[in-house]
Simulated scan of single mutants.
Amino acid sequence: MRCQKRFFAAASAALAVTLLSGCGSSEPSFHAKDISGLMPELSYSLTNSKGEPASASDYEGQVRAMFFGFTNCPDVCPTTMAELNKAVKAMPDDKQDDMTVLFVSVDPERDTPEKLAQYTNFFGDRIVGMTGPEASLRDLAKRYRTTFGYGEPNEEGNYDVSHSGAIYVFDEQGKARLLMRSDLTPEQMAADFEALMTEAG
């Protein structure tokens, strides 16, 4: 009798585990870190590469990937932009129009709208450049729990800018959903972007 009780207890526990894993199987599995509910929705008031006001409503209804950088960045920024462009190109043609990459320059002193346009156009037509006053950029960086800083200028007046290498991904409703790092492949990024689009559909 005692053995039967133990058997039924073990069987019940196994059934509970099976049911619980079955309940979670319908949820999307992302390669990037899921930050749903951990950060505020997408919101900014900046200037785009055409010199026009830019806000989150400009690309409403699209999945958006936001990256903080600067055009004089020697390594992280060009590599990240190239990888993001590959990720967009890896998606089906009908999905690419529902994806926009936001390149936010934290170097407004040097990154004019014209320079931003040249930079982003080089990497892909789904990449949009924008910047703004340092105070606005500081507020935006703080909103997403990151920061940036400026190094001392050299004799030519050139200086480095320190910034995060993270990519923030927002769904079609503008909710913060994913945090991507540089260890993801373009194919993994593309799969996550598509998963968000499928989820909304």
Rank of each mutant, 00 (worst) to 15 (best):
F170C: 06
R64E: 14
T198C: 08
S43F: 11
E52S: 14
V106N: 01
D75K: 03
C73T: 00
H163R: 00
Y144K: 05
N72T: 12
S26W: 09
Y144E: 04
G157D: 02
S45W: 06
G132F: 02
V101R: 08
L140G: 01
L15R: 05
D192A: 04
M81L: 15
L140T: 01
V88E: 05
L137Q: 01
T47G: 07
G201T: 14
Y159R: 01
T131S: 13
F103N: 06
R6G: 11
A16F: 14
E155M: 06
R6F: 09
E114F: 10
F8W: 14
G151T: 05
G124W: 03
K86Q: 15
S55P: 09
Y59H: 15
K175S: 13
K89G: 08
A11G: 08
S105K: 02
K50I: 08
S29T: 12
E27L: 12
S36C: 09
V101Y: 07
L46K: 01
V88L: 05
R126P: 04
P133W: 07
P113L: 05
F122H: 15
Q4T: 11
D125K: 10
F148V: 03
G201R: 15
A195E: 14
E52T: 11
D98M: 09
D171Q: 03
T146L: 01
F193T: 08
L84K: 04
E60D: 15
D183E: 14
F7G: 09
A87T: 02
A32L: 06
F8N: 10
L178Q: 01
P92D: 06
F122M: 11
G132Y: 02
L116H: 04
Q96G: 07
G201A: 13
K175F: 10
G165V: 00
E172Y: 06
S162L: 05
G51I: 12
E152F: 06
H163D: 00
K115T: 13
F30E: 02
T71D: 00
T198L: 14
L20R: 08
K33M: 12
G149T: 10
P133L: 10
G61S: 07
Y44T: 03
K5D: 11
D125Y: 04
A195I: 10
Y168M: 08
F30T: 04
D139L: 11
M99P: 05
L19G: 12
T198G: 10
R138M: 09
G157A: 03
